[in-house]
């Protein structure tokens, strides 16, 4: 590849007690690229994603984001980076149940110091883009699974992050809903130029990626070998 990768994990090791979750895992993500992390259950996909996002700290190895060593950063510096540069979409449970969907989407902007009015306006535009304006005033518990995930995608993208981390974002949805979420998600990510690290075990979801990396036994299969 001609360009420098945006995000790099080099030889990550991480154990939970006696369980080795990552065993020299390395992977690169380029700007604007959609990378699917695939592999069997328990192989270390989520752990790798959390390390890449600076949520988990590897025992050994290094994570570099835009030339900065994430593993050597102070905690508050790392959380600031997560808030401003990264977005997150999980399988479910990521929205604050007490807030409306609109307020949920506005929340990351508010946390970043944006004025309330501007944050809400921007959030409304994102809900519209994800075709869920109708749930703006509802709480997440009153939205359907598919609607909830679209709200979550809107919330992940509202700050225009450079990387979105998504762990089984359609895992709880049926095929049709899952596909619609992926269509909207990927289209929006491409438009904003965000890279996406997408953990999925579903080939139809992985088909929205540009490349796949396969995690097995805590290691990533070298991408050079993938034709």
């Amino acid at each position: 590849m001609p360009t420098e990768p945006l995000l790099t994990a080099e030889s990550l090791h991480l154990s939970f007690g006696a369980t080795t979750a990552l065993d020299s895992a390395s992977v690169q993500v380029h700007a604007g690229e959609i990378l699917a992390l695939m592999g069997p259950s328990g192989s270390g996909k989520s752990t790798l994603l959390h390390c890449l996002a600076g949520i988990l700290h590897p025992d050994l190895g290094r994570v570099t984001y835009a030339g900065r060593d994430l593993t050597a950063m102070h905690d508050d510096e790392r959380s600031a980076l997560r808030r401003t540069e990264f977005g997150f979409v999980f399988q479910f449970g990521q929205l604050v149940p007490e807030l409306t969907c609109l307020e949920n989407v506005a929340l990351p902007l508010r946390l970043g110091g944006a004025p309330r009015r501007a944050a809400l306006r921007s959030a409304a535009a994102w809900l519209e883009r994800l075709e869920v304006s109708d749930v703006a005033g509802k709480r997440p518990g009153q939205a359907s699974g598919g609607q909830g995930q679209r709200v979550a995608v809107a919330r992940a993208l509202v700050t225009r992050p450079r990387v979105v981390f998504a762990d089984e974002p359609t895992g709880a949805l049926d095929t049709l809903n899952g596909e619609r979420v992926m269509q909207l998600f990927v289209a929006a990510a491409r438009e904003t130029g965000a890279a996406v690290v997408l953990v999925t075990h579903e080939p139809r979801v992985a088909a929205y990626s540009d490349h796949e990396a396969v995690v097995r036994d805590g290691r990533v299969r070298a991408r050079e070998h993938v034709r």
């Binding site: 695939m38 080939p203 139809r204 992985a206 088909a207 929205y208 990626s209 540009d210 796949e212 396969v214 993938v226 034709r227």
Partner: peptide, 10 residues
Amino acid sequence: QRSEHLRLMR
């Protein structure tokens, strides 16, 4: 093979 399948699926 997975890689080839995914290429077509994309």
